[in-house]
Design a protein around this nucleic acid. Structure first.
Lengths: 214, 214
DNA sequence: TAGATTGTTAATCGATTAACAATC
DNA sequence: TAGATTGTTAATCGATTAACAATC
């Protein structure tokens, strides 16, 4: 939350880059060789200058009058985000959310390969989701070490989130993508990124409130 | 994305309020009658003044030396977000993610009641998830009108997101909580809030990149 | 060439933090 | 009372937008 911005790249820039990427891929599939900031800005409802600034962080240069080369820009963004080489990850908690995340094939495009799930429920242990095994949580330390896993996706119920986190950290996990909705207590060297549904819902709720009463 | 801030409440404030709420509920369950901004700030790693400002939007007043009354503050935040009266919603797309969202019981605490799911897959139509029916998408207009549903949770695959959105809008849905990862094209009077996993993953990926290379 | 677009510097805007008087 | 904490105003900080020269 109050995490220091890594090497000066604004978090907001990082959050926007994937939306540029999606748009650029659409343009690439339509055979567009080059594209200008103005064009991207129009589609996404942003200011062209903002996009130019964001793209500069990736190191690409555009050509006046022409814009940026679409394929070059796609590669540059993917590389900048580290999405061009696969990061292997495990999912902790194979409830319905964990199941959904294990089965989601779109992660491959974001450089994420889920290699296994972990749970404590004997009913789930030994099953497979999209060909990926579900192991007993007890085996996490062993697997993390043998497969050199750095990233864990936390998808357990809120009540056991901290407990599961402790196991992950002891196992050697270096970064946690946290879907549990709980603010986790962690060693300072462990990275976390929270997917905060209640924050998102709060924005929507209050828009709805104000809209309804207007 | 570039949505106007409703009635002057900063989006960032809205996003923080649920985290205050969660902390306050923990304090309430421990029997704390009152709490200061300093205390909240410490737990969440934020500046006390920021919290004081945020809480002022809810209309509560604190007492110097004492702080805020925990139960009063809880009610005020819940009321401010509209979480104290139930909003009924439907889920469009009962794949694994839609299934997970339909089954998630925590939404009740956020004023959200999922009343039904909709899908086009004959295998799913007619089934139930946690006692809630899954209907044919064709029946959406009818149900939305009869039950006065305003909110739709979009959980279909990216390829059909825009198409499903069009159906939702024609049915009379006023607000969309969008889990599809696609930037939707909408009539201007329809509210959207995107749950953007790729933005979240981008932040985590680049932190990991920089950490790994350090 | 003329005009569109980049890259960059300056101005604006909004959000966060600091300072401090008021209060219980 | 003394000290902690609120509410509020001012200062800072960072992110976005505007302006504009350079370039193809």
């Amino acid at each position: 939350m109050a995490a220091p911005v890594p090497r000066g790249v604004p978090v907001q820039t990082l959050r926007r880059l994937p939306s540029y990427l999606a748009f650029l891929k659409r343009m690439a599939s339509e055979g567009r060789p080059a594209i200008s900031c103005t064009h991207i800005a129009q589609d996404l409802g942003l200011d062209p200058t903002l996009i130019r600034k964001d793209l500069q962080y990736t190191g690409v240069v555009g050509r006046p009058k022409v814009g940026y080369q679409v394929p070059v820009l796609i590669c540059a963004i993917e590389h900048f985000l580290g999405w061009d080489n696969m990061t292997e990850a495990v999912i902790i908690g194979v409830g319905s959310l964990g199941h959904a995340l294990m089965g989601y094939e779109g992660f491959a495009k974001h450089g994420l390969r889920i290699v296994a799930g972990f749970d404590t429920d004997p009913e789930k242990i030994g099953t497979e989701v999209k060909g990926k095994p579900v192991f007993d949580l007890d085996r996490l330390p062993d697997l993390v070490e043998r497969l050199h896993i750095h990233l864990g996706v936390l998808a357990v119920p809120a009540e056991v989130a901290q407990e599961a986190t402790n196991v992950m950290i002891l196992s050697g996990i270096k970064a946690i993508w946290n879907f549990s909705g709980v603010k986790l207590e962690l060693a300072p060297e462990v990275l976390v990124e929270d997917v905060d549904l209640s924050a998102s819902l709060a924005v929507l709720s209050s828009k709805l409130e104000r809209r309804a009463s207007a």
